[in-house]
Nucleic acid binder design. Structure first.
Lengths: 265, 265
DNA sequence: ACCTGAACACCGTTCAAGT
DNA sequence: ACCTGAACACCGTTCAAGT
């Protein structure tokens, strides 16, 4: 009933699309996908549903805008650390994807290779999706609703620029970039899904214990139907999520190099 | 109002979980994700909501069961054409993934390479997701709800067995299989998303015109923010979806071979 | 131009009651 | 054991009315 102590917080700023999207992201982060309702939103923003509908067409558009804002921030910061440039969606732009990661262009280090650059962007997306687990579902939904929207091109552009820096023939740019983006979104999405369900477990069960649980469950599958899965069940234990993710990126990068050098049309 | 001519069809069979899941899949296929409601379901099954709740815990479980049934069928048929074996979820098992595809183990052909085998399974999943576009969203949702569920192991097992047939060291099985599965689900999901929104366009606009539209939209993006995406906009035109998908699979396969042969730990 | 808030249609879920 | 169907709580969305 009583929502913390935040109720009717005497609106200071005027309502705006930006403020609404910001509140939506907060709600999604703290209360999950099912926590984003117009009633929760109106309470948090101390207004009525009609006011929100003045700035936003409907819930789908709101979810799309929230997704776009977070992705835009994650992808923009990837470019040059510190130089945020033109972050159109400003929600949390300063902190998104800040964790520097393996081969990120650092402070005094020599310019990174295109490969390291790609790893950096990939990790930025991976971390953003890990921080906002609802992105896993929403990215899929958003792409269904409008692939001509802004979120796909944003990701595509960010990866594609680095692909251009590899020695891949121009005729393969689209195929290669698509493959990278698909792997990144697939892997990051699955990871976020894992995190989301780890979070919903009985409290006191932390991340490691969760992987342990899944690993054990896989180890106890029917030996006739799932021999392989049983066999690798304990390989998933102790593996760091981000390392695992990067290993996959490297696999695709290796494939790109191999395919290009051998020149098999 | 009037639902075709199927209303109150004098239930012949007794209600069962299987029949409910089957009806759910049909509803999802014909009416989309928003078309699956308990009211539509009760009408189609000529029963009340209470009856459904006797067999199924809630909507999430129903969606999970529908997803699992379709994935199980798609993945099982991939093994040996015609020998369906133990198809636990029988929804449309006969027709799922039947289109033989490039390197599928055919009638009189020599046994396919592990690579061709992997391409076959990947295409089976790709086609299943293309036929049931709601899978794109539901796979993501399902993995969030219960990664210890049966759908992940099913896909993992199916790909993993073929990975074992490649000359990859056992210590890399998990990483390599994960990478393949992530790419497949990511790419198939995005493709299904495209199909889904192509379908929701004003009628008379077919698949080709849709890609044309997106391609043109990408070609008209801001040159300052999206130079790369603009440049490859017309590469996406005329590209066959399945070929594009297989090219990505080949890229990952090439990466696996390259990484293994060079032995870079 | 921007906001209010009651009202509407619809949805997932429950449950006392039937067979 | 299995099914019925009215009822409940809640949700997205609308709209006449206000400023």
């Amino acid at each position: 009933m009583a929502t913390r102590t935040r109720r009717s917080q005497r609106r200071t700023e005027a309502l705006s699309r930006e403020r609404i999207v910001e509140a939506a992201v907060e709600l999604l982060d703290t209360a999950g996908e099912s926590g984003l309702t117009f009633r929760a939103l109106t309470e948090r923003l101390a207004t009525g549903p009609g006011a929100i509908y003045w700035h936003v067409a409907n819930k789908d558009e709101l979810l799309g805008a929230a997704t776009d804002a977070v992705i835009a921030a994650a992808v923009t910061v990837g470019t040059v650390a510190g130089t945020v440039g033109a972050a159109t969606g400003t929600v949390g732009a300063a902190t998104e994807g800040s964790r520097p990661a393996t081969g990120e262009p650092g402070t005094t280090e020599p310019p990174a290779s295109p490969q390291d650059d790609i790893r950096g962007v990939a990790l930025g997306l991976f971390d953003a999706i890990a921080r906002h687990p609802w992105l896993a579902t929403q990215l899929a939904a958003q792409l269904s609703r409008s692939p001509w929207g802004t979120v796909t091109p944003r990701i595509f552009e960010s990866i594609g620029r680095r692909v251009r820096a590899l020695d891949v023939p121009e005729s393969s740019w689209f195929t290669v970039t698509s493959a990278l983006v698909h792997y990144i979104l697939g892997a990051a999405g699955q990871n976020a899904a894992n995190n989301a369900s780890a979070r919903s477990l009985p409290p006191g069960v932390d991340r490691d214990r969760f992987i342990d649980t899944v690993s054990r469950a896989w180890g106890e599958l029917d030996p006739d139907e799932y021999p392989f899965t049983r066999a690798v069940a304990d390989q998933m234990r102790g593996h760091d999520d981000r390392e695992q993710f990067l290993a996959g990126v490297d696999l695709v990068l290796a494939g790109i190099t191999a395919t290009h050098h051998h020149g098999q049309e």
